[in-house]
Amino acid sequence: MTWKQVFTSSVGKKLTMGFTGIFLILFLVIHAGLNACIWANDGGEMFNAGAHFMGSNWVPRILEIGLFAGLLLHIIQGLMLEMSNRSKRATGYAVAYGNGGSKWYSRSMGLLGTIILLFLVLHLSDFWYPNRSSQGFLLGEEINLFTKMQQEFSELWVVIVYVLGCISLGYHLAHGFQSAFRTVGVHNKRYNLMLMTLGYAYSIVIPLAFAMMPVSMYLGWVH
């Protein structure tokens, strides 16, 4: 069986989704951990130090390429799967099965993912793009990201968009976390139960932490 066969089969495509999903889940931990430094309330010193390390060291910068590759793979494969899956039932039902058999968010991963994607465009153009372009996309001079955050999150509408983005992320993770592990083949009852609990906890804690950042800044809890 060739690699092409593996990754073009329905199960293989889902493996791609699962593995990239788990990779992105790990990334979010780092992202959230680093950003939590804003709550050190030291005028952004600790936060900027962390951000500087991530932006100026070759190791995280190379990993960043991997991150984008994984993200793109997750997005493109996800959208393609969504379209292909939708095409498998040309005539729909008059009465939908609805929530009797599954959670709404588990059926809406494509929609939630698309919302997150739109949010990401905004998010990257707010922070990542201005910073990297000031660096000349190499290891050049960075902007002060803490100040940038304070600027961005002084606008109420931006805060609201960020919070909505985080809610979408929460629901996406509520299904995605455990689904990813099932997809890569974890089937033992003991681990499934653990992963399910962990998944729900994760999908609340991480998006909540992210959402609290713009909120804290807007409300002036961070200085």
Binding site: N85, G101, R107
Partner: peptide, 30 residues
């Protein structure tokens, strides 16, 4: 189509076949 682990199949299965089997298949496939 491909499986997205929604669990609707398990909820409707007259013989209560568990979706754990799907995870097992994924492992077999991997």
């Amino acid at each position: 189509g491909a499986c997205t682990n929604t669990g609707a199949c398990e909820a409707t299965c007259p013989k209560e076949i568990s979706i754990t089997n799907i995870a097992r298949l994924n492992q077999e496939y991997l």
